[in-house]
Simulated scan of single mutants.
Amino acid sequence: MNDAQHPGESGFPSTGTPSSSGVAGPIDFPSRVRGCLLGGALGDQLGYPVTASSLEGIRIRFGAEGLRSLDQLPGGARISGTTQLALYTLDALIEALEWANSGTAADETACLWLSYLRWYAGLEGGFPETAPHPLPRWIDEQQLLHERRSPSAACLAALATGEMGSRARPLNTAAEGAESVARSAAFGLLPHVAAEFTARLAVHGAALTHGHPVAHHGAAAFSGMIRLLAHGDASPARAAAAVLADMESDPEASRLAGRLRAALRLGESGQVPLEELRDALGAGLAADEALAVALYAVLAGSDPDPQEHFRSTLALAINVDGDSSAIGSMAGSLLGAFYGEAALPPAWLASAEGTEEVTGMAALFLAQTA
């Protein structure tokens, strides 16, 4: 066991606790877990090469239709820090589940912070001077997850302080970037927990590095959608509408609620010109804008065939002016949680980076939730 783990009040049940929601439909839960995680990684890899580019710049590089497939990437597909942090988020939940399944409660937010510190140490060569030094875990042995792949400056700055950010004591009060949302899919995959617990975990996880409320609300909304897709047999539109309905009574979430409302409206109308998308949803850099663009892409890219739906959605998601890596990751995670592995194009998986690391982490998570 990691010496940084410590008892505390937990919302995790033991492995034997029966699910109150179950997994409806013919798609089994393990497939949804792998689909969500791999879908997020594929979306990240498609968006990563153009995440700092304008749509005009993307079209100059890849032609009038933009970047649409991993096989268009001359240097091959590569994960970014978005996937690295998504997997470190998952590892923190695995660690907390290990405690719960052994009969001991753990502080889940502390597990998240210690996991992010291990990610930081892998990139920077050591822990911040005033931070604890948790023992390594399986994920820390995966060299790919320690390569420097455009890590979030806000995340690095917050972790470098050696302090544990929270809503009460925020770090980076102006930080509202989409990376705080994209790493939060794993919260929604947790079985046997209430929606309120999922949202609380996501908020606390985002607050570790991002102090702006829109980052907190975005993480909660995204993980809530994943939860409804993976456990509630909801369609993407119904999942988004349900999350939006819960947000309507919270004045602090009004900015995100407005973006999601617009995304639902635009997505149900089909594909719209980029200028209209920018006006309604923003540039796709902040947490609320990026989540709204990802949701729009999922709805507007609809196709009866899951793999075609995935391809068209990812093309819409990453050919924008915003954070294409984070937007692509969110869109891919949503469809992977909805369809399971059936959404993932085999040719994309064959050319993708990090599939062994992702499926390895999925297996560890599923072993604790079986």
Results as ranks from 00 to 15, higher is better:
89 T>V: 08
89 T>C: 12
89 T>L: 03
89 T>K: 02
89 T>Q: 11
90 L>H: 06
90 L>S: 12
90 L>A: 12
91 D>N: 14
91 D>T: 12
92 A>H: 00
92 A>C: 09
92 A>Y: 07
93 L>Q: 14
93 L>F: 06
93 L>R: 09
94 I>M: 05
94 I>W: 06
94 I>D: 03
94 I>S: 01
94 I>R: 10
95 E>M: 04
95 E>N: 08
95 E>C: 03
96 A>Y: 02
96 A>R: 04
97 L>Q: 13
97 L>C: 06
97 L>I: 00
97 L>P: 06
98 E>P: 02
98 E>H: 02
99 W>E: 01
100 A>N: 09
101 N>A: 08
101 N>L: 11
101 N>C: 12
102 S>K: 11
102 S>M: 07
102 S>H: 15
102 S>T: 13
103 G>H: 07
103 G>Y: 14
103 G>I: 07
104 T>M: 13
104 T>G: 03
104 T>H: 12
105 A>G: 15
105 A>S: 14
105 A>F: 07
105 A>I: 02
106 A>K: 02
106 A>G: 14
107 D>P: 02
107 D>F: 00
108 E>D: 00
108 E>T: 05
108 E>Y: 00
108 E>I: 14
108 E>V: 12
108 E>A: 10
108 E>N: 04
109 T>F: 04
110 A>W: 12
111 C>A: 15
112 L>Y: 09
112 L>M: 10
113 W>L: 06
113 W>P: 00
114 L>R: 10
114 L>Q: 09
114 L>D: 10
114 L>K: 01
114 L>V: 03
115 S>V: 00
115 S>M: 11
116 Y>A: 03
116 Y>W: 02
116 Y>V: 05
116 Y>M: 06
116 Y>S: 08
116 Y>L: 09
117 L>G: 07
118 R>G: 01
118 R>C: 03
118 R>E: 04
118 R>F: 05
118 R>I: 00
120 Y>P: 01
120 Y>I: 03
121 A>H: 02
121 A>T: 05
121 A>Q: 04
122 G>N: 02
122 G>A: 05
122 G>D: 10
122 G>H: 11
122 G>T: 06
123 L>C: 00
123 L>A: 09
124 E>R: 04
124 E>K: 08
125 G>K: 08
125 G>N: 10
125 G>H: 11
127 F>A: 11
127 F>T: 01
129 E>A: 15
129 E>D: 11
130 T>Q: 12
130 T>D: 07
130 T>W: 04
131 A>T: 05
131 A>M: 06
131 A>I: 07
132 P>Y: 10
132 P>H: 03
133 H>T: 12
133 H>K: 15
134 P>E: 04
134 P>W: 07
135 L>H: 10
137 R>I: 04
138 W>F: 11
138 W>E: 14
138 W>R: 14
138 W>D: 15
